[in-house]
């Protein structure tokens, strides 16, 4: 079908200038990716709202579903800073989100999805100087969903919304800080074995070895 129009589920033309994963390998990873980067979220959008919309692309009867959602947080304040990762169990579901959800509204903002190389520890935090996303530091307009005027004014706005913002005050760094969401079905062991360790699938971590992408660069470039 690609002769007449371009499918919407192609990876974007973004390339991470810092990655040490070569282009061929990136393409291979993207062609199997089950993870989406979701951008242009309101700071107040909850994981449950994201879950509701992205469930529409899930195929549970095919062994799919939403594995987990990782909310992007301001490095300093531990408050949502406008992006997240949605991880499915299957690649098809990620493609469906690209086709059907990317470019539609969530919480009254047009969100943007992109296939991602896979969540890697530490990537839940913003990488701007202020702790949030770089794009919000360069922003000149007033955006009530993203803390009003750029990075300076955000402080006040965040005070005002402390109740919502305290949600992630307990967010942790380090290995195992982010739950895996549950792996494939396994034959159950006897319940006497209480100390079942977490399997690699539970971890759900796409161990890439290094940071694979600067999310906010992408935002700055494309929004």
């Amino acid at each position: 079908m690609a002769h007449v129009v371009s499918p919407l589920d192609q990876p974007s033309n973004y390339k991470d200038s810092q990655t040490r994963v070569d282009r061929q390998r990136q393409n291979d990873l993207l062609s199997k990716s089950t993870t989406l980067y979701v951008g242009n979220l309101s700071f107040y959008t909850t994981e449950e709202q994201i879950y509701e919309l992205f469930t529409k692309c899930a195929s549970p009867e095919d062994g799919g579903g939403i594995k987990r959602i990782i909310m992007g947080l301001d490095r300093n304040t531990r408050t949502p800073c406008g992006f997240c990762f949605v991880e499915y169990y299957t690649h098809t579901e990620a493609l469906a989100s690209m086709r059907y959800v990317s470019g539609t509204k969530l919480d009254e903002r047009i969100i943007r999805c992109d296939l991602d190389l896979g969540y890697k520890e530490g990537r839940q935090f913003g990488r701007g100087k202020s702790g949030g996303q770089v794009r919000d530091e360069h922003r000149q307009d007033y955006d009530p969903g993203r803390g009003g005027w750029g990075a300076q004014a955000q402080r006040l706005e965040i005070e005002r919304r402390r109740e919502v913002e305290e949600r992630y005050a307990d967010a942790q760094d380090g290995p195992g800080a982010v739950a895996g969401g549950g792996g494939d079905w396994k034959e159950s062991e006897s319940s006497g074995n209480l100390k079942r360790g977490r399997s690699p699938e539970d971890e759900g971590d796409g161990r890439l070895g290094q940071r694979s992408r600067l999310d906010e660069d992408m935002d700055a470039e494309r929004m």
Binding site: E47, R68, Y168, V178
Partner: peptide
């Protein structure tokens, strides 16, 4: 109960 991720963390 704070969020979906908190639920997953608690269960795990």
């Amino acid at each position: 109960s704070r969020s979906f991720s908190h639920l997953l963390n608690a269960i795990e």
